[in-house]
Design a binder for these strands. Structure first.
Length: 817
RNA sequence: GCCGGGGUGGCGGAACUGGCAGACGCGGCAGACUUAAAAUCUGCGGCCGGAAGGCAUGCGGGUUCGAAUCCCGCCCCCGGCACCA
């Protein structure tokens, strides 16, 4: 018997050898075509969990495959090293974030090496190092100069547990919780820095240049939330407010003749002045009540729509009608103009409101079979306009444009597009992030730090105290400085940047990670960019993946790149669950530790098993039995390759042809599956091929030469999934190092094609038997053969054959009376 | 409510463009090897039925020679958006 397969012995050996030989360095200039394969870089939590393996191992297999296909593959790795956990840990146990983060990274590097991943470590980026984050500051200054970064006072979301503000994208769910810790957020009025992502709203809605999953595209579309409509001005008809107006945004200008009331958000600036003395007490108490309610309460659709009349009226410019102005907390100050025209006949919410307060309902878009009265339910479908003066009879979708145009000519309406998307709030009231390169001078105001003074270093001697406030606020050495304009004392901004700023451009830094002159070398950008394939979890669909698209467009406009999009193709892997089918968590006790699995079965088995589990984008439960099955397969491959049978010099011709067919079919299947990220069926194909080789070996009817070719093909095709075992076997066969530098096998379609096919014979669509036919047999031949076969005769005897359908190579269907 | 994805054996899953449903793996059963066990190898495995045969891809219809796949109407699960005017 040959040596047993012992991954624990061979895996570290090859990892060291590959590293020493710099096998996976991606040269910057090369005659081969480039392929930039990016995976989402991890946060250095200090332990590589099974989710990291699931994200990286199948991606690594595909990167290896692309190398064998002849691409110059850039497959980099780095660490998303700023962020809250390290800072919280510092407050808890006094270890400085730098120290802990660097320790964590060191440990994870070791674990990544044990995976056998073919990363080009020479390009590693670590975002908490000044050589990285100085470029965050540099980009910030450029965006500031271009008017794409600005400071504003606004009501923003604050996480009371993380003690910082959050971007809209980081507030999740209908109960508005912090994306990181799940704590419900609260509103705070603060001065904060923003990136003007809304400037790119329309361009971000254009997905025509990229091949991204429908799911992500939809989520981004929803998030941006573009709606087209009109803004219409209603003049106020109140003694003290002569000449002032309320503007509303509506997507239904065609219903403007149906307006029977107006509703303002409680925060609307006109509310106080509009309120008549007799209504004041009631309105004021309503407004106070509304502002006291939480955001979640306010936005709950189930809540009853309440409101209060201000006592004032405005005038519908289209028909001159006086319309009462109400205040209602279902109207949001943060969307549109903070005022809504009430058209109860054609809007469900307005109808509820009108019924509650006895306001009139006037139908202006006729439902089919309209009786001239008011509809019982809000009618929102298409129809012809009625009760609408000169627009009567017009289909309402045309009416939208006609009404807006007419109002525009009169000067009280204009087309308008509104977005749900808000500018990206990047200020964080925390230490462990990139300092925002701004200082405040009493004389000059907010002053950008000159580029030549970058980086603004994060002071390492900060105090981490459980006060909830950033240590930078109390660090005089950091805070106190001089104004570069006037030389007088000034104070630095103590907020740091959202870590999503780091990840918005890290792919570019991989090109020249130690470049001191620029964030990345534009020359290299011309070769490597854009990213060809990006893989990672779906959870970043509207955060990171939206921000990085914005960033690329913004720096394109700054002249730093010519690409419109950062990533051509996106693929989202799913989530690995515990063996019980539940999300892995320490409290459930269902966590699978990859290090344990590697110790037991080897990295190759863990990699292959993760690929075999199911479709990569679906994830699924980790099965302890399942990984044993894959481990058994690798053992079979091992024994099959090393235990070469006694074989004749000349084999049996038919058996050899069958073997060759299996070889070429398998190459085709494995290649197609890798192209489509179908790793599960790729492993299944390799298993089938292994089983076929085992059968051939038992028969001993092929020549040694043919056998060797078949066995080598097995190693080449398995190399991406199980890089160590295949390297070892390749070496033991005496073949030249390295299996990973061999060319990917090509398949020949003619050799993969069958000559004799087993065809199912159906009678009236039910399979009753099967026959063997040659590939090129025509329908006549096949149907004659089918009708004559014993298994079929009993089913058709005495019945009239009405029709015979032959699907080449698949089946014959005999249709009888 | 709107949008996207899904529902297939005991389990994970497979099935090109409408063409033999259940590849591959797990578990199970039977056998070989072994004093025995483990490991390994071989065979059998959708359900009902002794068999013939029938029934089967969430449910109900339809189109078709033929439907897991296409169409219509539902149910359930996952994710996103949602008082957004």
């Amino acid at each position: 018997m040959t040596d047993r397969y012992e991954p624990g012995g061979i895996e570290p050996k090859w990892q060291a050898r590959w590293e020493a030989d710099q096998l996976y360095r991606a040269p910057d200039r090369h005659e081969r075509p480039k392929f930039f394969f990016l995976t989402m870089y991890p946060y250095p939590s200090g332990d590589l969990h099974i989710g990291h393996w699931y994200a990286e191992a199948p991606a690594d297999a595909r990167a290896r495959y692309l190398r064998m296909r002849g691409y110059n593959v850039l497959f980099p790795i780095g660490f998303d090293a700023f962020g809250l956990p390290a800072e919280n840990a510092a407050i808890r146990d006094g270890i400085h974030p730098y120290v802990r983060t660097r320790q964590n990274i060191e440990r994870m590097r070791t674990q990544f090496r044990a995976m056998g991943a073919c990363f080009d470590w020479s390009r590693e980026v670590v975002t908490c190092e000044p050589e990285y984050y100085r470029w965050n500051q540099w980009f910030f200054l450029r965006l500031y100069q271009a008017g794409l970064a600005y400071r504003a006072r606004a009501a923003v979301d604050w996480c009371p547990k993380c003690n910082t503000t959050l971007a809209r994208e980081q507030v999740w769910g209908d109960d508005r919780r912090c994306e990181r810790c799940g704590t419900p957020v609260i509103r705070k009025e603060l001065d904060q820095w923003f990136f003007r992502i809304t400037k790119y709203a329309d361009e971000l809605l254009d997905f025509s240049r990229i091949d991204w999953p429908e799911r992500v595209v939809t989520m981004q579309r929803n998030w941006i939330g573009r709606s087209e409509g009109a803004e219409i001005d209603f003049m106020l008809d109140a003694p003290a407010l002569e000449g002032e107006r309320i503007s509303v945004f509506t997507t239904r200008p065609d219903t403007v003749f149906g307006v029977t009331f107006m509703v303002l958000a409680p925060e609307h600036p006109l509310v106080a002045r509009l309120t008549t003395p007799d209504r004041r007490a009631e309105v004021e108490s309503y407004v106070t009540e509304a502002t006291r309610r939480t955001e979640v309460e306010r936005q709950s659709a189930e809540r009853e729509k309440t409101g209060v009349f201000t006592g004032s009226y405005c005038v519908n410019p289209y028909n001159g009608e006086r319309v009462p102005v109400w205040v209602g907390d279902y109207v949001l100050m943060t969307y549109g103009t903070g005022a809504v025209m009430g058209v109860p006949a054609h809007d469900e919410r307005d109808l509820v409101f009108a019924h509650r307060y006895g306001l009139p309902v006037r139908c202006v878009v006729a439902p089919p079979d309209w009786d001239g009265g008011e509809p019982a339910e809000a009618y929102v479908d298409p129809g012809r306009m009625v009760n609408s003066a000169q627009f009567d009879g017009l289909p309402n979708d045309e009416g939208k444009r006609a009404v807006t145009e007419w109002g525009e000519r009169q000067g009280f309406a204009r087309p308008r597009v509104t977005y749900r998307l808000r500018d990206w709030l990047i200020s964080r009231q925390r230490y462990w992030g990139t300092p925002i390169p701004i200082l405040y001078c009493d004389a000059c105001g907010a002053v950008p730090v000159p580029e030549s003074d970058l980086p603004v270093l994060l002071p390492e001697d900060a105090q981490f105290l459980p006060t909830g406030e950033s240590p930078l606020k109390y660090h005089d050495g950091f805070r106190k400085t001089r104004c570069p304009r006037c030389g007088r004392p000034a104070e630095r901004e103590t907020d740091t940047m959202d870590t999503f700023v780091d990840s918005s451009w890290y792919q570019y830094r991989y090109l020249s990670p130690h470049d001191d002159d620029a964030p990345f070398d534009p020359e290299l950008g011309r070769y490597w960019l854009p990213v060809d394939v990006y893989t990672g979890g779906i959870e970043h669909a509207t955060m990171h993946l939206l921000y990085t698209r914005f960033f690329t467009k913004a720096i394109r406009d700054l002249g730093l790149t010519t690409n419109d999009e950062p990533v051509l193709r996106l693929f989202n892997q799913g989530i690995i669950l515990g063996p019980d089918g539940q999300k892995m968590s320490k409290s459930r006790g269902n966590v699978v530790n990859p290090d344990d699995q590697v110790a037991k079965y080897g990295a190759d088995a863990v990699r292959s098993y993760l690929m075999f589990i199911g479709p990569w984008d679906e994830g699924g439960p980790f099965s302890m039995r399942g990984i044993e099955g894959v481990s058994r397969w690798l053992n079979r491959v091992w024994n099959l390759v090393l235990d070469t049978p006694e074989l004749p010099a000349h084999g049996d011709e038919a058996t050899e042809r069958d073997l060759l067919r299996a070889v070429h079919k398998t190459i085709r299947r494995v290649t197609d599956d890798l192209e489509r990220f179908r790793f599960n069926t790729m492993i299944a194909a390799l298993m089938e091929y292994t089983n076929a080789l085992q059968k051939v070996r038992e028969v001993r009817a092929v020549s040694l030469a043919k056998w060797n070719d078949a066995a080598r093909t097995l190693l080449l095709l398995t190399a991406p999934a199980a890089p160590h075992a295949t390297e070892e076997l390749w070496a033991r066969l005496g073949l030249p190092y390295s299996v990973h530098q061999q060319s990917w096998p090509e398949y020949d379609p003619t050799l993969a094609a069958d000559e004799i096919l087993a065809v199912a014979v159906q009678v009236n669509g039910k399979t009753r038997g099967r026959i063997e036919v040659s590939v090129d047999a025509d329908q006549d031949t096949v149907s004659r053969q089918a009708l004559a076969s014993d298994a079929i005769r009993g089913w058709i005897d005495g019945r009239e054959v009405r029709r015979v359908v032959y699907v080449r190579g698949r089946l014959v269907n005999i249709v009888v009376q």
